[in-house]
Amino acid sequence: MNKSRTEPWLLVLPVMALLVIAFVIPVASSLIASFTSTGSPGFTLANFSDFFESSVHLTASARTLRMAFIQTIASILIAVPLAYIMSRLSARARVVMMIATILPLMTSVVIRTFGWVILMGPSGPLARIPGFLELSNSHQGLLGTELGVNIAMVQVLVPFAVLSVLGVINGIDVRLQEASRTMGASFLRNFWHVVLPLALPGIVSGATLCFALSISSFITPNLIGGAQLPVIGAFIYQDATVNGDLPFAAAQAMLMLMAVLITIAATNRLASSRMK
């Protein structure tokens, strides 16, 4: 056997092993489980037909996808200018900004979300704004509203978006931007015509990451949106832990995975056609 050909494989072996143990096997067993039923032996499509016959699950799916799209777009809209500004700062200021961006990731999502619950609720500072409480029909301000969930989720997602966009923007040759400025592009037109197209790979990967994180989240939607705005992640959790119906939970998880994969394929296709 040729040594130079086997050595690279040895290097990826740990990653491959981890991938198989932590991803391939669980996903495969979930896939198999999704075609079984707790009550009866053999393969069945019952879990999927149950899902598509349940208006609650369909509504929750639509809500999950809708919120994931909104949150992804909002996160990218915030992250791209932020990452661009960060890339233009001095090294020291960039470190400060970097820490400020990453710091929220160091605290638990639950803690952060409780912060939002207080901020968005009837005893928070925003409640003093006339009409704020009426944003939800239960007079809970932003609690129990999709807007509230979206705001809290965007706060969770923006650091991920910033990090993936910043990685790409930092790699853009600064002389391209200087050249564009000397060629008559203003700050904004340079951003639009040069930075944005070149940052597209980072934006696509950031958006994909945000979308996948958003679609699978259930802690923040649960705490802010509550039981009345269920998302698919919450149903999966409920069916797996409370109802003990693992096959149905697995079926929902597979549908969610499919939604993510389709989105990734679509965005990658879109991006590669744009970059050609």
Binding site: S138, Q140, N222, G226, A227, Q228
Partner: peptide, 11 residues
């Protein structure tokens, strides 16, 4: 009551 917003549902 929950849908009308007269009550909230906690988990």
């Amino acid at each position: 009551a929950a849908k009308a917003g007269d009550a909230v549902v906690i988990k």
